[in-house]
Design a protein around this nucleic acid. Sequence first.
DNA 1: GATGGGTATTGAATCGATTCAATGCCTCGA
DNA 2: TCGAGGCATTGAATCGATTCAATACCCATC
Lengths: 354, 354
Amino acid sequence: MAKKTVGISDVAREAGVSVGTVSNSFNRPDSVAPETRARILAVVERLGYVRSESARQLRTGTSRIVALLVLDLANPFFVEVANGAERAARAAGLGVMVCTSAQSPSEEAEYIGLFTEQQVRGVLVIPADPTGHSLEPLRRQRIPYVVVDRLVQDAEVCSVSVDDVVGGRLAVEHLLTQGHRRIAYISGPPHLQQIRDRRTGALDAIAAAGLPPETLHELPTAHMTIAAGRDAAARLLGLADRPTAVFCANDLLALGLEQALYAAGVKVPEEVAIVGYDDIEFASAVAVPLTSVRQPAAEMGRLAAQMLLAEADAPGEDGSENGSQNGGKSRHEHRAVVLQPELVVRTSSLHRVG
Amino acid sequence: MAKKTVGISDVAREAGVSVGTVSNSFNRPDSVAPETRARILAVVERLGYVRSESARQLRTGTSRIVALLVLDLANPFFVEVANGAERAARAAGLGVMVCTSAQSPSEEAEYIGLFTEQQVRGVLVIPADPTGHSLEPLRRQRIPYVVVDRLVQDAEVCSVSVDDVVGGRLAVEHLLTQGHRRIAYISGPPHLQQIRDRRTGALDAIAAAGLPPETLHELPTAHMTIAAGRDAAARLLGLADRPTAVFCANDLLALGLEQALYAAGVKVPEEVAIVGYDDIEFASAVAVPLTSVRQPAAEMGRLAAQMLLAEADAPGEDGSENGSQNGGKSRHEHRAVVLQPELVVRTSSLHRVG
DNA sequence: GATGGGTATTGAATCGATTCAATGCCTCGA
DNA sequence: TCGAGGCATTGAATCGATTCAATACCCATC
């Protein structure tokens, strides 16, 4: 019976060299004579040899894939983040393993466990568990990770996020400028930091305009989905003194709202103006295109991946390393990068009142 | 200096047993005495031991992750497929590596190469390369794979797809029933089998109604995106004898079309009726909800993953295997599963003409 | 002809878990 | 008391590539 797979030793034998030389011709090509290398590559081609990553990884201790754990691929915002990250990683010759935690801390923990067993090169994570507890195994195993879409001040970890206070301010400033004086905030789960930050920004704008905080009327929702947006519309229409404008914590909510308002015969933006958040592609694809706070999602993914790779290539952080080849100066510094959002004005908010 | 990571031998020493016993307590728990096992697990906990997948994989020859290669995560349809597949794989204790080929055969080939090096358990692939050439390495390495969203008659490979002829027929039958006699087909790249199949179904319906093939007016597009849908709207409105109904090859096209028609003041469905394809979530979330041909995307992903796992667990297909423990009867049979689409009628097509 | 220096190649040790034949121990029945 | 048989455990071989100190070889120089 034939041997199952062709290994490096088969190539070596067939090419009349040692396994070391075959390995070298892959990993340090210029340390082997051109003609030898050519001969080896020919044999590789002929035998259809592919090297075993598991063996390679066992020896070198590090794999060639990075993991990306997002909350939910159903939200195009996260897809964009994933795309940015994937491109950056591919450019560095690494594969990306995209997984979804479905916002569940336990799923998150399970995946983190899988990643540590795989000894992935690093992890990009949008945390579902606010305590950060589920990331503990990564710290223990010294697997570098970068927190995405959440600000972490820790100084023990890198993070890339977008300034949500600014985003909330931009949205509400715009609505105030349009003359609105009663503004609803369809927010989402109140325990999310982002929801709170955007509210803070909204209230900042209101205070700056010399208006009372009651100007903002918050309508929390359990989920940030299209369906939740529809539900919120009903609540909005039931309000005694109906707001003339709505700031939604993401575009899915805004789309659901806009649809429900249309169905109820309420004109957007004439009767109710809407501002969304994220600026997903679909926001600009509906009949009344949505004004939205644009987050640089792809950029966030790209940056996060680059920071991760930088950390993975840099020496670790226990002091025992100095005196080695790099004079300590290139030791990795954890950074918390905060990107700036941007308001994209479209039809859904283009109507002056008052 | 402390040893980098804690390995199975550290656990063994600390627990006063041999490495074999530690390994056993993970892989065949009931072959080891309960109290021994408890002692070992306690040590594992205390030392924070995580087993090395690379070592495990090197020995056993197979990994615990399956790869999923889709064309484009920006289309929610593929996201749904991915979700179905991921859930099924997770249920079997496997991780999923989701990657996007961006419709590029060369990217596809690169990823396939990565997968073979990783010796993944199996690959689910929505092929970008119509020749199937880029999948060759999988065959050589005997890595099981299932083709998703494409019908493959090959009998050398499993596939899961949806009947596009039926889908096209359903869409156009519906429009004919509504009284339409001039129907546009905004299609997409003509070289895609799916585009052709849907056209075939559309023409079937027209023939069955005793109408001439000219009833269908095809408007091909280079891409199947929202932007392409907008462009197609302009072409549609420029037609001499403007169709009263449009069948779009996917929902992105349909959404772009609907938006552009709204902007041009053309009423949907009164002046132009629209039927989309895929029934993504956003199709039902716009002001005039979209009638669409629903594909069981999650089901397709789920089924594909299950078929893949079945194949991965079954013996290979070279005849040399018989006489072994399984009497040959459980040998894997390649199947081409074809699922049925379903028409979901919404407002965008609900208007009788003629 | 000897010496030195550079380049190309070798081969054995190593990474960490799995596997399985061999061993040890214990109990129960004859 | 002895032996059979079952259960728990051992430990050495193994997977396949990487790595590096050692070696071999060649050419230039003195």
